[in-house]
């Protein structure tokens, strides 16, 4: 059955189809990645799964059809999205951003405070800047905050849209270290990445998207050695080292 199942999803902007007939699955406890070039419709896919865009087809969560539910309800059910544009509350403090991350939770202030402490332990940099406005953070810190804020809602399924975007290599490394750790905590992950190699090295299963369609899929460990994929996405030729 799977945690998340998408069946024949199509999305149009006006008369233009951005996504055609996409089906994919995320099993509980798995990291699934969708790779592909810019403009392939990957971000559109995540926006649709979280309910920000109308679509045709079906989206099942734990076997339940959620296609008609609004974004807020999906968040309450356990969806989390770290969007490509981060969408932080720029003129609010780091602490308040985290507080709002827990808006959909119903387990009381004390539990939320504890979660914030846990998040601060995981991202010590954020603790140092807890009273600073989110808009004044550096690129890497913003991404950490977006990550941390999404975790505050205790999601079952966390969707990451290009988490390595605009980050220094050291921080990218950190991001890809955290992802498997979250999986081990029981959060399933749907990862969209342009950095195809890192994504496939981290994930269990991978899909390749091009011009709105899924063109390849398979175990990540197999895809990463696929000669055609290597030529297209993994950097033209094998790495020098």
């Amino acid at each position: 059955m799977g945690l998340l199942a998408i069946e024949n999803l199509s999305v149009s902007y006006g008369k233009v189809e951005a996504i055609r007939n996409v089906s994919l699955k995320v099993e509980a406890g798995e990291i699934v990645t969708v790779i592909g070039p810019n403009g392939a419709g990957k971000t559109t896919l995540l926006m649709t799964i979280i309910g920000l865009l109308p679509c045709r087809g079906r989206i099942l969560f734990n076997g339940e059809d959620i296609t008609g539910l609004d974004t807020e309800r999906r968040v309450e059910m356990g969806f989390g999205l770290v969007p490509e544009r981060r969408e932080l509350f720029a003129e609010m403090s780091v602490y308040d951003n985290l507080l709002l991350g827990a808006f959909s939770r119903r387990d009381g202030t004390a539990a939320v405070r504890r979660s914030i402490d846990e998040v601060f332990d995981r991202f010590p940099r954020l603790r140092e800047r807890r009273n600073q406005n989110a808009g004044t953070l550096s690129g890497g810190e913003r991404q950490m905050l977006a990550f941390a804020r999404a975790l505050m809602s205790k999601p079952t399924l966390l969707m990451l849209d290009e988490p390595s975007l605009g980050l220094a290599p050291l921080i990218v490394k950190e991001v890809f270290r955290i992802i498997p750790f979250l999986r081990d905590l029981g959060v399933s992950i749907l990862l969209i990445e342009q950095n195809a190699r890192s994504a496939l090295e981290t994930a269990n299963y991978g899909y390749v998207m091009e011009t709105g369609e899924i063109v390849r899929q398979g175990l990540a460990s197999e895809l990463i050695h696929d000669p055609q994929l290597i030529a297209t996405y993994l950097g033209g030729q094998e790495r020098a080292h």
Partner: peptide, 9 residues
């Protein structure tokens, strides 16, 4: 190569 091809892992 380090930066562009993803010097991670």
């Amino acid at each position: 190569q380090e930066a562009y091809l993803g010097g991670v892992a």
